[in-house]
Design a protein around this nucleic acid. Structure first.
Lengths: 144, 144
DNA sequence: GTATGTGCAAAGAGTTTGCAGGGTA
DNA sequence: TACCCTGCAAACTCTTTGCACATAC
């Protein structure tokens, strides 16, 4: 677990810094995001916020997550099965995705920056970001 | 251009082989796909089919593309801006995507299979496929 | 002739937006 | 107090589905 309190405080600071109001609804979303290392869907964030703040609406979750995305505090991983959100590592990074149970795991790839540089050199593109994801069956699902 | 006639014939053969009927609508979609090396959207395929077959509906395009996808003759590249389709290389392969003009280009990466094997070894996942895409600004858009 | 395919329109899923009332700063 | 934020419902986009008619084989 990557210090949830620290991420929460960072995100609160970012909102303050940009003059956004610290409403209880926003705090609840930040808390849910800072506690989630499983790349939750919007629906899942909604369900995690509800116990703390039962009157919250889905629209507010969407608005808050979109805001945090624009501030660079949340990374959106768009999959054909639906979008997933990551507030732990709010920047592009490689994933392993189990096509059976939809678990999303972070992975490290050593020479990813080199790969982007090579693409840029070969094609003339100015590379802004990349997406490297592997789809497969996780060990738990293989055991079933 | 990767021999449009050949791809068209291959796709026709695949439909026949599986007992699907060769309707004029389907032929028009196959032709549009076999002629398109720009990773078209469904809407674009629709527009390319219309001149040949003005009564075609969007629903039929969706149904035909979905069928070809299931038969492994079309690869679906799902982007947050909308899905793109590739009948030239109907399998996962790396892309360069211009975030300004939405152009999608194929690229080669030498050791992609090695990368997947390394992931599998590190994590225990059985890797089925992967997605490696780079987002940036193409040379044309840089010049503007 | 018969089952499959088409085309329309309606239904769905996921997400965004307009607006009136409420709450933060 | 003033403006921003919330929550509801409606709108929107993309895609799928049900059904009656048409048609490939």
């Amino acid at each position: 677990m990557a210090a949830p309190k620290k991420r929460f405080d960072e995100m609160v600071a970012k909102l303050k810094e940009h003059g956004y109001r610290l409403t209880p609804q926003r705090m609840a979303v930040l808390k849910a995001l800072a506690d989630s290392d499983d790349h939750p869907t919007i629906e899942k964030i909604f369900k995690r916020v509800k116990p703390d703040f039962s009157s919250t609406s889905l629209a507010t979750i969407y608005k808050t997550v979109t805001l945090l995305k624009e501030l660079g505090e949340v990374y959106e991983l768009s999959l054909s099965e639906g979008n997933r959100y990551d507030a732990m590592k709010p920047f592009p990074h490689p994933h392993l995705i189990c096509v059976n149970c939809d678990t999303v795991t972070d992975v490290d790839i050593n020479h990813l920056a080199d790969l982007a540089a090579e693409m840029s050199r070969k094609t003339g593109y100015r590379i802004l970001n990349q997406r490297v994801d592997f789809f497969g069956i996780c060990t738990d699902c293989q055991a079933e």
